[in-house]
């Protein structure tokens, strides 16, 4: 019983990281129709930038995040401006290829600037173990889960009620009609990149705090991909829930089946789910009036 609890609880922690990264994917996909393959790299880059800030200033955790998030938003805006904006009106596939290129560039850039060796990222959280019932947690783990819950809630409220949030859904639904309503589509795309970059930075810093800061962190982006698909690709909330599911499933497979199963279990879940629900757990079906 304890073993199961332990697997589930640590699974939830990893899953929270997946969920956060997946939400970044989903947000950009929802607003722009593009799968941003550089999402994992964006997470890594912003984590490294935050690492440098922490290194220089030694800020407390909350102050560090308060500084990291705006910086990341600026990075997101800048990348959108340089790499994505000029592609407006090109086929989606071309834009996806650009994000793949961007991913490779960012990987190189991180190694170039910060070196290939892993670093210890002290985000300013204590490392006293906290017990919740029978299960021990590090504060960084709890903060990660709490951050995911918080970001999910904020994202839900934002997309449901705010003008920009509704506009994002409008652009996703019909881009030309959005233009005709006076919505600046390129500005909405920029917003999506900005917010997705902010989410990436939260994921990146907390992932680094829980695991490690290394130039192979981008791979978490790929590992979050099952969560994105499972959630339904265009569902931001679905992505976060699916992240948790994938995290727990991975841990259970590893615990009860074997080490090698961990890496592929997420993809097994996708295959099974897509056979039953091709639009993911929360993804939107095509609306068709008969």
């Amino acid at each position: 019983m304890d073993f199961l609890l332990l697997l589930v609880s640590t699974g939830l922690v990893t899953g929270a990281a997946y969920g956060l990264i997946a939400m970044g994917f989903a947000l950009v996909y929802k607003a722009t129709g593009v799968v941003n393959f550089a999402q994992g790299e964006l997470m890594m880059l912003t984590a490294y930038v935050s690492f440098s800030v922490a290194d220089r200033t030694g800020l407390s955790f909350l102050m560090l995040m308060a500084l990291t998030i705006p910086i990341s938003m600026a990075i997101g805006l800048l990348l959108e401006r340089i790499f994505i904006r000029p592609m407006l009106g090109e086929p989606v596939f071309s834009i996806v290829m650009v994000t793949i290129g961007l991913a490779v560039i960012l990987r190189g850039l991180v190694i170039l600037v910060w070196g290939p060796d892993p670093a210890v990222f002290d985000v300013g959280l204590p490392d006293t173990v906290i017990r919740l019932g029978p299960v021990p947690f590090y504060p960084a783990q709890l903060v990660l889960v709490a951050a995911m819950a918080g970001v999910t809630t904020i994202a839900w409220i934002f997309l449901r009620f705010s003008r920009i949030g509704i506009a994002m859904r409008a652009v996703a639904a019909n881009e030309t009609a959005a233009r005709l309503s006076g919505i600046s589509v390129s500005r909405i795309h920029a917003f999506a990149w900005m917010f997705s970059s902010a989410i990436a930075s939260i994921a990146g810093v907390l992932f680094a705090a829980n695991f490690k800061l290394a130039p192979d962190m981008w791979f978490q982006g790929m590992k979050s991909f099952p969560a994105v698909i499972l959630g339904g690709l265009d569902s931001v909330i679905g992505a976060s829930v699916a992240g948790l599911v994938i995290g727990v499933v991975e841990n259970l497979f590893q615990g009860y089946v074997g080490q090698g199963m961990r890496e592929i279990s997420g993809f097994i879940v996708i295959v099974v789910v897509l056979m039953v629900r091709p639009y993911g757990l929360f993804g939107s079906r095509e609306i068709e009036r008969v």
């Binding site: 859904r169 409008a170 009609a177 939107s284 609306i287």
Partner: peptide, 19 residues
């Protein structure tokens, strides 16, 4: 018509007043 099919009627109208 080109409505925002996935949005509610009111959300469609709100978007018309985006500017």
């Amino acid at each position: 018509r080109a409505l925002f099919a996935t949005l509610t009627v009111e959300e469609n109208l709100l978007m018309g007043g985006f500017t």
